[in-house]
Write a protein that binds this DNA or RNA. Sequence first.
DNA 1: CTGAAAGCGCTTACAG
DNA 2: CTGAAAGCGCTTACAG
Lengths: 337, 337
Amino acid sequence: MERRHRVSMTDIAREAKVSPATVSRALNGHPTVSDKVRRSVLDAAERLGYVRNLGAVSLASSQSNTVGLLIRDAGNQFYGGLASRIQAETDRYGFDLLITAGGDTLESQERAVRNLLGHGVGGIVIASGRVAAEAAEYSARFVPSLVLGTGLELPSLSSVRIDPHMEAGLARRVVDHGHRSIAVTASEDPLASTLHARTANFLTELVVAKTDTYIVSFSEQGGVDELGRQVDRALADGVTAIMAGSDEMALQILEYLNISGLRCPQDVSVTGFDGIGAYRSSLLGLTTIEQPVDELAHAAIKLMSRHMNEEHAQTAQILVPGRFVKGRTLGMAQTSD
Amino acid sequence: MERRHRVSMTDIAREAKVSPATVSRALNGHPTVSDKVRRSVLDAAERLGYVRNLGAVSLASSQSNTVGLLIRDAGNQFYGGLASRIQAETDRYGFDLLITAGGDTLESQERAVRNLLGHGVGGIVIASGRVAAEAAEYSARFVPSLVLGTGLELPSLSSVRIDPHMEAGLARRVVDHGHRSIAVTASEDPLASTLHARTANFLTELVVAKTDTYIVSFSEQGGVDELGRQVDRALADGVTAIMAGSDEMALQILEYLNISGLRCPQDVSVTGFDGIGAYRSSLLGLTTIEQPVDELAHAAIKLMSRHMNEEHAQTAQILVPGRFVKGRTLGMAQTSD
DNA sequence: CTGAAAGCGCTTACAG
DNA sequence: CTGAAAGCGCTTACAG
């Protein structure tokens, strides 16, 4: 248990009676090393409890086998789940993965990118609903970078996300249930690019369908009271369905309705987005879209692998379909007229 | 957007017309640098888009300002939330944070530790319900290490977790509701040390209270069918309450009861554990214990800071109280006799 | 207050 | 197949 002098390649070289260069080659599986030597080097490394200094490796080789993942908040089910799947994919590809949380401001995001870069990552995946475009572009100045699961549109960067047709399709379903006055949530945070894109996609479809639209704006600070006021006002104006930008928001709305004695979907329909974890529970019965987390992670790392290996890989915008989750919170509009 | 030659301290030195040594000192806020020189160095660094190579830093200084966090799975609300709070705390302390996911096997966990170590972290926080003690001890051989939010007991390592009295207290409440035949979930995964400890704590209290106890064993693979069989058997044997090791398990049980037409708590009571995120929703109404995520993260980083700064800081076992969440899934036992 | 030099742990042409 | 040597980007006594 006592903390020893960190063992280096030199120690192994001494132990195995070869040169440091040979140790390096043996450890890296270089083919020109004789089996006998390789064996004894590996033995010595094991015996001494050797841990490779990755910083020194990337310093000396000026290339890196590790990819960095920038997420805003692992506490968010969607991004947490994404991180978890990304880890599985990088494992498959033999990459090391370093994760860091980006925070909510441009400054803290650039700090996070610098942190990753400073640890010598060879590529960065940015998975955060609230990225400043500047942070992504900053990252791209140094290593192949890719934006994942986000509404952010940057023609110069590769991106992987759910097909926006899913959002349009959800809106169409709401319309098809007879709703003609529909509220959409909107975030007040200017950095919440994913939510903004979602809101815009919902609205576009609703406007095309010639329905009345209504905005319920969400502020992080507002709390339940502010949310309640907004919902009340919307209902008073005749809204019969609310499309939330995320399951989390949808759940907050459902809780408020419940407290107020309003029934869902009889009095008002509610839809969510993400369809992950507990929000998927049949007990909640939320009508929502399930994000294709596995496919998103898979496509992202596949693409990243290409970017890291080919000098001038084409940037690509990949769209992955999601899945509609029926639930019980979307019902037919009551024809009160 | 084009990827340039990575700028180094030498480049800054040339630009600012000073020596690399001075650049280093200026960047590190060394007091012996004249204001004028410092200014021009900082300017040059900014202008050139300098990113410090942290690997080289820790290589040269053989000390590190970054702490590593090993979590099993960011997709798990509890650990995801913990990661998110840990980030906030390390930010406060001025540490950099590197996160990596450990996986489920001893081998992948040691790999994760080596990855962190290889990137030169100065300390490691292990937050995973399924740690092999060996992985934690391996980590402790190299840097100050600390186990967080876990049932794992290692006298040689510092640890921070929820006070086990919370588990006992929950069991006592169930008993106080008149239940005399109570099932407890148990995981079949030998590495699930947190769940095992929880199960043991529940059982101890139940046995002390002289109730009949019953085990519902949970396997990752079993699926709903297997779970249903187990629950049915327990109920047939007269069980009137089920204490789940986590909210996630509790929710699965509730879903099964719902499908089977059984009411909770009228037919059977169910309790959870963790009380995080969507599981806390009043719509679910789960009776559970809320883990003190903020306090856990705070205590962990405070302790880690001490371990990293003082040569021989005392190892400590810190217990943080949680909070009982009343919910609606725990009711009085029906006196059918 | 500043610089020249050695060294941290590695890799990689270059010889042999 | 193996070794000696230079160098990656930094820090830090040691001189001045």
